[in-house]
Design a protein around this nucleic acid. Sequence first.
DNA 1: AAAGCCATGTAACCAGTTACATGATTCT
DNA 2: AGAATCATGTAACTGGTTACATGGCTTT
Lengths: 187, 187
Amino acid sequence: MKDTNAKYVVLGLLSHSPMTGYDIKKSVAQRMSYFWDISYGQIYPTLKELEENEQITKKVEVNEHGPNRKVYTITDKGLKELQIWLAKPAKKEVHKYEFLIKLIFGDQAYPELNLKHIQEFKARNQKILQTMKLFEESLKPILNQNEGHYYVLLTILLGKSISQTSIKWADNALKMLQDHNSKEGKT
Amino acid sequence: MKDTNAKYVVLGLLSHSPMTGYDIKKSVAQRMSYFWDISYGQIYPTLKELEENEQITKKVEVNEHGPNRKVYTITDKGLKELQIWLAKPAKKEVHKYEFLIKLIFGDQAYPELNLKHIQEFKARNQKILQTMKLFEESLKPILNQNEGHYYVLLTILLGKSISQTSIKWADNALKMLQDHNSKEGKT
DNA sequence: AAAGCCATGTAACCAGTTACATGATTCT
DNA sequence: AGAATCATGTAACTGGTTACATGGCTTT
């Protein structure tokens, strides 16, 4: 079977507890939103394939209000596959900052436009920072309850740091641009 | 024609000076590597389409050593399209930190493995930081020669800040994990 | 009444990558 | 001798998204 990151995200989450596809989507959104995303279009086919490969097993829970819940549990085989993947070096980070493409060609635009892009970037990061802080607070009291929580905390700390830094950069960039614009005497 | 980011990266670069497809690849690698990437598989078809749409024009320069250089120049129509795109709000940032997927499931791996992933992340960021610093230095003396340089500088400052923050996080995370591991008495 | 949550799944699409083909020149 | 740079381009692939279909329950 294909060696996609989606596969290992699913396997990793199931290594903590059995879940449905719907739960997986929610978990990724809650705990990994800063650095990863996953769609149902990936989740359901991946679960199907993992089951066919005996890396997970399915248990159908009858649900009278809507479709039956299909709860998946990781197998020993699945756990081993996960551990093999964990031992491989990670690929380098991929970033897509669309607003930086707009900013780097800022000499072709009205100065206010550039300020606007930076302000919006700042706002996005403030929102992320807030979410991260709340998550961190919710995690602190239960840190020693579960070994896994410690690793979640580490990833949150990076998200927090980067969004804080991004906000600081934005404030500075706004000042720099305003100075620059007033010097040039532009509108 | 399709509304891809590749199109506007090409248009943006050509708004500064005429270039070949090969030059565009190099320019992106030099000036935008931190937050964007582009492949020949995108560049050449994009140039073809942009020319068909009269947003750029082609001039063939005879080259006796290998294929002829096709130098593209932006048209007024192309410039307008670029400016319209610049005025639209940017999509939110997309990040793919594969190593954080490995780290967040770190309770399923040997502790040394987690340390290794963090060290490698740190090393990647040190390399980026060095490149950014050199680029910044090369830009400073020519800042007022060209309005465009100012915007390039702003993007570099963000790349610098984020890689510096990432390195600091890595140092802290390494300490935290080592403490944590010695408490647990794990191998 | 409407929005949002729970819960499953597929088909079509799309952005972007990789591998390949070609080949001379220049640097180490 | 071998690697890197210059320079063009295409076909196949792939990772991931979007839109759609279905429908009851709960909250505002």
